[in-house]
Simulated assay, not measured.
Amino acid sequence: MAVPKRKTSKARRDKRRSPNMKMKAPGLSICPQCHEPKLPHRVCPNCNYYDGKDVMES
């Protein structure tokens, strides 16, 4: 089994980890019915419309 000869420095360790730790805000689109922001390809939580149709009875 391979064993490292030297301790990995904090800078080298964190440089490797940093791209995976960045969180991105979700991309939002505007609902064509009520003009509220919503996640793309999902039913609008405000008016329950998707693709111009009422898909959930409220």
Rank of each mutant, 00 (worst) to 15 (best):
A11Q: 11
P32L: 06
S29C: 12
R16P: 02
C44A: 04
Q33R: 15
H35P: 01
R16V: 10
K10N: 13
M1E: 08
R42Y: 02
E36K: 13
M21G: 11
R17G: 06
C31L: 06
K5M: 12
Y49A: 01
A25G: 03
L28Q: 11
V43H: 00
N46T: 12
R17P: 00
P32H: 04
P37V: 03
K24Q: 13
K24E: 15
C47D: 04
K5P: 08
A2T: 12
R16K: 15
C47W: 03
E36R: 12
K53Q: 15
S9A: 13
N48Q: 09
R42E: 12
C31K: 01
D54F: 00
V55F: 02
V55R: 05
A25Q: 06
M21Q: 14
D54K: 09
A2W: 07
E57Q: 14
Y50N: 04
P40Y: 03
K5Q: 13
E36H: 09
M21K: 13
R12K: 15
P4T: 02
M56K: 13
R42N: 04
K22N: 08
C47H: 03
I30D: 10
D51V: 12
K53V: 11
K7N: 10
R17Y: 09
D14Y: 04
V55A: 02
Y50L: 14
N46W: 05
S9H: 08
K22A: 07
D54P: 00
S18M: 09
L39Y: 10
K10Y: 12
K38Y: 00
K7S: 10
V43M: 00
D14C: 04
M23R: 15
K22E: 10
K5R: 15
N46S: 08
Y49Q: 07
V3C: 06
K53I: 05
E36C: 03
D54V: 05
P19W: 11
M1V: 09
K22L: 04
D51G: 14
C34D: 02
G52Y: 02
L28R: 09
K24G: 04
M56D: 14
